[in-house]
Protein backbone atom coordinates (compact mmCIF):
# COMPACT_ATOMS: atom_id res chain seq x y z
CA UNK A 1 0.00 0.00 0.00
CA UNK A 2 1.48 3.32 -1.04
CA UNK A 3 0.63 6.55 0.73
CA UNK A 4 -1.58 8.86 -1.38
CA UNK A 5 0.95 11.69 -1.34
CA UNK A 6 3.46 9.35 -2.95
CA UNK A 7 0.97 8.38 -5.67
CA UNK A 8 0.33 12.04 -6.43
CA UNK A 9 4.07 12.70 -6.49
CA UNK A 10 4.67 9.83 -8.92
CA UNK A 11 1.79 10.81 -11.25
CA UNK A 12 2.65 14.49 -11.35
CA UNK A 13 6.40 13.89 -11.39
CA UNK A 14 6.22 11.47 -14.31
CA UNK A 15 3.91 13.68 -16.35
CA UNK A 16 6.07 16.74 -15.83
CA UNK A 17 9.29 14.83 -16.51
CA UNK A 18 7.98 13.74 -19.93
CA UNK A 19 7.01 17.31 -20.80
CA UNK A 20 10.35 18.67 -19.53
CA UNK A 21 12.28 16.04 -21.51
CA UNK A 22 10.61 16.70 -24.85
CA UNK A 23 10.72 20.49 -24.61
CA UNK A 24 14.25 20.31 -23.22
CA UNK A 25 15.43 18.41 -26.29
CA UNK A 26 14.48 21.32 -28.52
CA UNK A 27 15.69 23.94 -26.05
CA UNK A 28 19.18 22.43 -26.12
CA UNK A 29 19.05 22.05 -29.89
CA UNK A 30 18.02 25.70 -30.32
CA UNK A 31 20.55 26.89 -27.67
CA UNK A 32 17.71 28.43 -25.68
CA UNK A 33 18.49 26.88 -22.30
CA UNK A 34 19.13 30.35 -20.89
CA UNK A 35 15.52 31.27 -21.72
CA UNK A 36 14.37 28.40 -19.51
CA UNK A 37 16.60 29.68 -16.76
CA UNK A 38 14.86 33.05 -16.98
CA UNK A 39 11.37 31.54 -17.15
CA UNK A 40 12.15 29.38 -14.14
CA UNK A 41 12.91 32.47 -12.11
CA UNK A 42 9.79 34.17 -13.37
CA UNK A 43 7.72 31.36 -11.84
CA UNK A 44 9.05 32.39 -8.45
CA UNK A 45 8.13 36.03 -8.88
CA UNK A 46 4.72 34.99 -10.18
CA UNK A 47 4.04 32.80 -7.17
CA UNK A 48 5.27 35.48 -4.75
CA UNK A 49 3.17 38.09 -6.53
CA UNK A 50 0.16 35.81 -6.14
CA UNK A 51 0.85 35.48 -2.43
CA UNK A 52 1.61 39.17 -1.90
CA UNK A 53 -1.62 40.33 -3.48
CA UNK A 54 -3.71 37.63 -1.81
CA UNK A 55 -4.33 35.93 -5.10
CA UNK A 56 -3.89 32.25 -5.91
CA UNK A 57 -0.08 31.68 -6.06
CA UNK A 58 -0.39 28.90 -8.64
CA UNK A 59 -2.50 31.12 -10.89
CA UNK A 60 0.02 33.94 -10.45
CA UNK A 61 2.84 31.59 -11.32
CA UNK A 62 1.12 30.35 -14.46
CA UNK A 63 0.04 33.74 -15.74
CA UNK A 64 3.43 35.38 -15.10
CA UNK A 65 5.42 32.61 -16.77
CA UNK A 66 3.28 32.33 -19.89
CA UNK A 67 3.11 36.12 -20.19
CA UNK A 68 6.91 36.50 -19.98
CA UNK A 69 7.37 33.65 -22.47
CA UNK A 70 5.01 35.49 -24.79
CA UNK A 71 6.98 38.69 -24.19
CA UNK A 72 10.26 37.01 -25.16
CA UNK A 73 8.56 35.69 -28.28
CA UNK A 74 7.33 39.15 -29.28
CA UNK A 75 10.52 41.05 -28.39
CA UNK A 76 13.05 38.61 -29.76
CA UNK A 77 14.14 38.88 -33.32
CA UNK A 78 12.89 35.77 -35.09
CA UNK A 79 11.30 34.73 -31.81
CA UNK A 80 14.65 34.34 -30.06
CA UNK A 81 15.52 37.04 -27.55
CA UNK A 82 19.09 38.24 -27.16
CA UNK A 83 20.65 36.80 -24.02
CA UNK A 84 21.59 40.22 -22.66
CA UNK A 85 17.95 41.29 -22.90
CA UNK A 86 16.85 38.08 -21.20
CA UNK A 87 19.49 38.46 -18.51
CA UNK A 88 18.61 42.06 -17.70
CA UNK A 89 14.90 41.39 -17.70
CA UNK A 90 15.13 38.41 -15.43
CA UNK A 91 17.57 39.97 -12.97
CA UNK A 92 14.94 42.64 -12.48
CA UNK A 93 12.11 40.11 -12.29
CA UNK A 94 14.00 38.44 -9.45
CA UNK A 95 14.37 41.78 -7.69
CA UNK A 96 10.62 42.11 -8.03
CA UNK A 97 10.27 38.64 -6.52
CA UNK A 98 12.30 39.79 -3.51
CA UNK A 99 9.96 42.76 -3.16
CA UNK A 100 6.80 40.62 -3.34
CA UNK A 101 8.27 38.29 -0.79
CA UNK A 102 8.97 41.22 1.53
CA UNK A 103 5.38 42.43 1.13
CA UNK A 104 4.03 38.97 1.81
CA UNK A 105 6.20 38.31 4.87
CA UNK A 106 5.57 41.71 6.47
CA UNK A 107 1.87 41.08 6.08
CA UNK A 108 2.02 37.54 7.46
CA UNK A 109 4.55 38.00 10.24
CA UNK A 110 6.43 34.92 11.38
CA UNK A 111 6.16 32.03 8.92
CA UNK A 112 8.35 33.57 6.24
CA UNK A 113 11.33 31.52 5.05
CA UNK A 114 9.19 28.48 4.35
CA UNK A 115 6.79 30.07 1.89
CA UNK A 116 9.67 31.29 -0.26
CA UNK A 117 11.54 27.99 -0.03
CA UNK A 118 8.49 26.03 -1.22
CA UNK A 119 8.37 27.93 -4.48
CA UNK A 120 12.12 28.16 -4.95
CA UNK A 121 12.80 24.48 -4.38
CA UNK A 122 9.46 22.79 -4.98
CA UNK A 123 7.37 20.51 -2.85
CA UNK A 124 6.62 17.36 -4.78
CA UNK A 125 5.33 15.56 -1.69
CA UNK A 126 2.82 18.34 -1.08
CA UNK A 127 0.91 17.89 -4.35
CA UNK A 128 -2.84 17.35 -3.94
CA UNK A 129 -4.83 14.90 -6.05
CA UNK A 130 -6.44 17.67 -8.08
CA UNK A 131 -3.03 19.23 -8.72
CA UNK A 132 -1.73 15.84 -9.89
CA UNK A 133 -4.63 15.52 -12.34
CA UNK A 134 -4.08 19.04 -13.64
CA UNK A 135 -0.35 18.34 -14.07
CA UNK A 136 -1.10 15.19 -16.02
CA UNK A 137 -3.54 16.99 -18.31
CA UNK A 138 -1.23 19.95 -18.92
CA UNK A 139 1.72 17.67 -19.61
CA UNK A 140 -0.38 15.64 -22.04
CA UNK A 141 -1.29 18.85 -23.87
CA UNK A 142 2.39 19.92 -23.93
CA UNK A 143 3.48 16.55 -25.32
CA UNK A 144 0.76 16.49 -27.99
CA UNK A 145 1.69 19.99 -29.10
CA UNK A 146 5.36 19.06 -29.22
CA UNK A 147 4.68 15.93 -31.28
CA UNK A 148 2.55 17.98 -33.67
CA UNK A 149 5.14 20.72 -34.20
CA UNK A 150 8.24 18.51 -33.85
CA UNK A 151 8.96 18.07 -37.56
CA UNK A 152 8.63 21.69 -38.71
CA UNK A 153 10.30 22.91 -35.50
CA UNK A 154 13.25 20.61 -36.09
CA UNK A 155 13.60 21.95 -39.62
CA UNK A 156 13.33 25.54 -38.40
CA UNK A 157 15.86 24.93 -35.61
CA UNK A 158 18.48 23.32 -37.83
CA UNK A 159 18.30 25.73 -40.71
CA UNK A 160 16.06 28.69 -40.19
CA UNK A 161 16.67 30.35 -43.54
CA UNK A 162 16.00 27.27 -45.64
CA UNK A 163 12.94 26.38 -43.57
CA UNK A 164 11.57 29.88 -44.05
CA UNK A 165 12.21 29.63 -47.78
CA UNK A 166 10.32 26.35 -47.91
CA UNK A 167 7.29 28.05 -46.35
CA UNK A 168 7.66 26.93 -42.74
CA UNK A 169 6.22 29.66 -40.48
CA UNK A 170 9.49 30.03 -38.55
CA UNK A 171 8.48 32.98 -36.38
CA UNK A 172 5.13 31.52 -35.42
CA UNK A 173 6.71 28.18 -34.56
CA UNK A 174 9.34 29.84 -32.39
CA UNK A 175 6.68 31.80 -30.55
CA UNK A 176 4.44 28.77 -30.08
CA UNK A 177 7.40 26.80 -28.80
CA UNK A 178 8.25 29.51 -26.24
CA UNK A 179 4.65 29.45 -24.96
CA UNK A 180 4.86 25.66 -24.59
CA UNK A 181 8.14 26.11 -22.69
CA UNK A 182 6.43 28.65 -20.44
CA UNK A 183 3.64 26.20 -19.64
CA UNK A 184 6.17 23.43 -18.98
CA UNK A 185 8.19 25.66 -16.63
CA UNK A 186 5.07 26.66 -14.73
CA UNK A 187 4.24 22.99 -14.22
CA UNK A 188 7.77 21.91 -13.39
CA UNK A 189 8.08 24.68 -10.80
CA UNK A 190 5.58 22.82 -8.64
CA UNK A 191 7.66 19.65 -8.64
CA UNK A 192 11.28 20.72 -8.40
CA UNK A 193 10.83 24.43 -7.79
CA UNK A 194 11.70 27.62 -9.63
CA UNK A 195 15.44 27.25 -9.23
CA UNK A 196 15.81 23.58 -10.06
CA UNK A 197 13.47 23.05 -13.00
CA UNK A 198 16.38 24.06 -15.23
CA UNK A 199 18.09 20.79 -14.30
CA UNK A 200 15.09 18.66 -15.18
CA UNK A 201 14.94 20.36 -18.57
CA UNK A 202 18.61 20.67 -19.51
CA UNK A 203 20.33 17.61 -18.03
CA UNK A 204 18.23 14.81 -19.64
CA UNK A 205 18.15 16.70 -22.93
CA UNK A 206 21.88 17.34 -22.81
CA UNK A 207 22.51 13.65 -22.14
CA UNK A 208 20.25 12.65 -25.03
CA UNK A 209 22.08 15.02 -27.37
CA UNK A 210 25.39 13.44 -26.37
CA UNK A 211 24.17 9.88 -26.80
CA UNK A 212 22.54 10.15 -30.20
CA UNK A 213 22.42 12.51 -33.14
CA UNK A 214 19.18 11.02 -34.51
CA UNK A 215 16.53 13.60 -33.65
CA UNK A 216 13.47 11.47 -32.90
CA UNK A 217 15.43 8.90 -30.93
CA UNK A 218 16.98 11.73 -28.93
CA UNK A 219 13.56 13.30 -28.42
CA UNK A 220 12.23 10.07 -26.85
CA UNK A 221 15.47 9.41 -24.99
CA UNK A 222 15.37 12.84 -23.31
CA UNK A 223 11.86 12.10 -22.01
CA UNK A 224 12.92 8.64 -20.82
CA UNK A 225 15.96 9.97 -18.95
CA UNK A 226 13.87 12.69 -17.33
CA UNK A 227 11.28 10.14 -16.14
CA UNK A 228 13.98 7.77 -14.89
CA UNK A 229 15.68 10.61 -12.98
CA UNK A 230 12.38 11.59 -11.37
CA UNK A 231 11.65 8.03 -10.29
CA UNK A 232 15.19 7.51 -9.00
CA UNK A 233 14.96 10.79 -7.11
CA UNK A 234 11.62 9.89 -5.54
CA UNK A 235 12.89 6.46 -4.55
CA UNK A 236 16.08 7.87 -3.07
CA UNK A 237 14.23 10.47 -1.08
CA UNK A 238 11.83 7.83 0.30
CA UNK A 239 14.82 5.73 1.38
CA UNK A 240 16.78 8.67 2.80
CA UNK A 241 14.11 11.06 4.08
CA UNK A 242 16.62 13.69 5.15
CA UNK A 243 17.49 14.54 1.56
CA UNK A 244 14.87 16.76 -0.11
CA UNK A 245 13.22 15.09 -3.17
CA UNK A 246 14.05 17.96 -5.50
CA UNK A 247 17.74 17.55 -4.70
CA UNK A 248 17.54 13.80 -5.37
CA UNK A 249 15.79 14.31 -8.72
CA UNK A 250 18.33 16.89 -9.90
CA UNK A 251 21.24 14.80 -8.63
CA UNK A 252 19.94 11.79 -10.59
CA UNK A 253 19.52 13.89 -13.73
CA UNK A 254 23.00 15.38 -13.37
CA UNK A 255 24.42 11.89 -12.84
CA UNK A 256 22.72 10.74 -16.06
CA UNK A 257 24.38 13.64 -17.85
CA UNK A 258 27.75 12.84 -16.32
CA UNK A 259 27.45 9.19 -17.40
CA UNK A 260 26.50 10.21 -20.93
CA UNK A 261 29.45 12.60 -20.94
CA UNK A 262 31.87 9.91 -19.78
CA UNK A 263 30.48 7.33 -22.20
CA UNK A 264 30.88 9.60 -25.20
CA UNK A 265 34.07 11.45 -24.24
CA UNK A 266 36.32 8.69 -25.53
CA UNK A 267 34.32 8.24 -28.70
CA UNK A 268 34.58 11.94 -29.47
CA UNK A 269 38.28 12.02 -28.83
CA UNK A 270 38.91 9.09 -31.15
CA UNK A 271 36.79 10.84 -33.73
CA UNK A 272 38.81 14.02 -33.60
CA UNK A 273 41.84 13.00 -35.72
CA UNK A 274 39.50 12.05 -38.59
CA UNK A 275 38.33 15.59 -39.20
Amino acid sequence: MIAPYLVHAIVAGTAIAVAAGVTGYFLVLRAQVFTTDALGHVTYTGAMGGLAFAFNPLAGLFVATVAVAGGFAVLGRRARADDVVIGSAFAWVLGLGALFQRIYTTRHGGANGRAGATYLFGSIFGISSSQAVVSAMVSLAVCLTMVLIARPLLFASLDEAVAAARGVPVRLLGAAFLIVVGVTCAQAAQVVGALLLLGLISAPAGAAHRLTTRPFVGFALAAAIAVASTWAGLLLSSLVPRTPPSFDIIAAAALAYLLAFAATARRQQSRLPDN
Partner: peptide, 20 residues
Protein backbone atom coordinates in the same frame (compact mmCIF):
# COMPACT_ATOMS: atom_id res chain seq x y z
CA UNK B 1 24.07 24.29 -27.73
CA UNK B 2 26.01 21.53 -25.97
CA UNK B 3 27.76 24.03 -23.73
CA UNK B 4 24.47 25.54 -22.62
CA UNK B 5 23.27 22.11 -21.48
CA UNK B 6 26.43 21.73 -19.39
CA UNK B 7 25.98 25.14 -17.83
CA UNK B 8 22.32 24.51 -17.11
CA UNK B 9 23.05 21.17 -15.48
CA UNK B 10 25.83 22.62 -13.35
CA UNK B 11 23.55 25.43 -12.23
CA UNK B 12 20.67 23.18 -11.22
CA UNK B 13 22.99 20.78 -9.43
CA UNK B 14 24.70 23.59 -7.57
CA UNK B 15 21.41 25.07 -6.40
CA UNK B 16 20.08 21.65 -5.46
CA UNK B 17 23.19 21.04 -3.34
CA UNK B 18 22.63 24.37 -1.65
CA UNK B 19 19.11 23.31 -0.82
CA UNK B 20 20.37 19.96 0.47
Amino acid sequence: SAESAVVGTVQALVLASGYL
